[in-house]
Simulated assay, not measured.
Amino acid sequence: MNKNFTLDLSRISKEFILLLEFLKLDGSNNVLLNNNQVLVDIDWDHFLKLTMHHRMFSVIYSKIKSLSDSIVPAFVKQDLKKQYQKNTFQMLHLSAEMEKVSKLLTENKIRVIFLKGPVLATELYGDISLRTSSDLDILIPINDLVRAEQILIEEGFEKDEYIKTVLSDWKWRHHHITYYHPKKRIKLEVHWRLNPGPRKEPDFNDLWKRKRKSSITKYPIYILGREDLFIFLITHGARHGWSRLRWLMDIHQILKQPIDWNKLKVLLNKYQCFHIGGQAIILSSHLLNTPITKEMEQFIKSNVAKVLAQDAIYYFENMINLHTDPVPEDVSKYHERHLFSLMSFEQKILFFLSFLHPYPEDAEVLPLPNYLHFLYFPLRPFLWVWRKTRKHVSIGGFNK
């Protein structure tokens, strides 16, 4: 890493710093044991909250379980052990269901790639217990969505009808549909894109050609090719502001693996996320001591990547949760700006053009029969102004 560049971590809590120090521990690195400063005045209850928020309790437990009580209080280790065991059972449960889902869809001639869950834990950590997951994420061709839904519903899954759409904008504004099995208590996210649009992405057929077979189950389970997986992990993590350290730990783990850097460079440039790759590597290096190889240096020279990496530190300064509404207004505004800064010039153009496409809210303001939905295009500016005006009046207290 460039010795002249360092991330400003001055506003990060000492408990988060300690969390990072524990994550850096390995058999040959026990610097922490000789550095009492990082252990002074630690709020261990807050530390435990951080491990839960960042979904790092399993990895942390594996790092600290053998440390003496003078370093980590017994109640902390006991709490982490309980969460670790709970997660292990959850991942075993998901593993069994993963195999069933793979077999079910494959036997119905639907190609499926598993994105996260136990298969990712095995791929990156070599142990399903060391990564947390609350659901299964699969990727299938968009043309198979209707058939897949019928199959899943017949198996007892229920669809979460949260997507509102007009003129088929769901195909690019969204990227997955959620199903839940009430008896098995399994949540399954069926993706047709890796990330929401509008942005250029690899075609499913290309991803399928580069797929790999996992050894986690007897029945074949397919995962993304290593370079495609890296792109998925960085774009997913960046889209969420790296607000959970688990996503950055995934980067730390995959960077230890044999990546075809020339192939990756071509793909990152093609899908306009070279700078996001740089952001991820910088964060992983600075926070988790990921070794920077000669092949990685080309990705971290960019000033854009450095600025993006520093901007992401905001999400570590507090336990920011982007998944639970309502998100505080200041956090929401910062996140909107950060998402925009992640876009390439072409992506920004597509982003602005996307506003010209009708939104479901337009149909709510002015319901029209399906055969007249094309009128939402010319009406879009007027409907947008109307919604903003009504929102302003409501906030002002004149229409309660």
Results as ranks from 00 to 15, higher is better:
355 F>N: 12
161 E>P: 06
165 T>A: 11
53 H>N: 14
318 N>R: 15
287 L>N: 08
251 I>A: 01
313 I>W: 13
378 P>V: 06
238 A>W: 06
102 S>M: 07
363 A>H: 08
83 Q>K: 13
88 T>M: 04
19 L>V: 09
23 L>F: 14
3 K>Q: 14
155 E>C: 13
37 Q>L: 15
317 E>V: 07
13 S>Y: 12
98 M>H: 01
250 D>L: 12
10 S>R: 02
264 L>A: 05
356 L>D: 05
72 V>G: 03
230 F>N: 00
232 F>Y: 12
115 L>M: 07
249 M>W: 10
116 K>E: 09
323 H>L: 14
213 K>P: 03
33 L>Y: 13
292 I>D: 04
100 K>M: 15
277 G>C: 06
104 L>A: 04
43 D>S: 10
334 Y>N: 08
330 D>F: 15
209 K>M: 12
77 K>N: 09
8 D>T: 03
345 F>V: 09
307 V>T: 12
193 R>I: 03
335 H>L: 12
278 G>Q: 06
197 G>P: 08
323 H>A: 15
258 P>R: 05
145 L>H: 09
388 K>H: 13
201 E>C: 03
262 N>L: 03
195 N>A: 07
76 V>I: 15
108 N>F: 11
389 T>H: 13
262 N>Q: 10
255 L>Q: 09
5 F>G: 01
209 K>P: 02
116 K>C: 07
213 K>G: 02
285 S>R: 03
319 M>G: 02
133 S>M: 04
221 I>M: 04
161 E>Q: 14
252 H>P: 06
52 M>T: 04
140 I>Y: 07
88 T>G: 02
179 Y>R: 02
135 D>W: 15
352 F>H: 13
76 V>Q: 08
22 F>T: 02
175 H>E: 07
16 F>Y: 11
31 V>I: 08
32 L>C: 07
97 E>A: 11
263 K>M: 01
281 I>W: 04
369 P>D: 02
345 F>T: 08
140 I>A: 00
248 L>Y: 05
202 P>F: 04
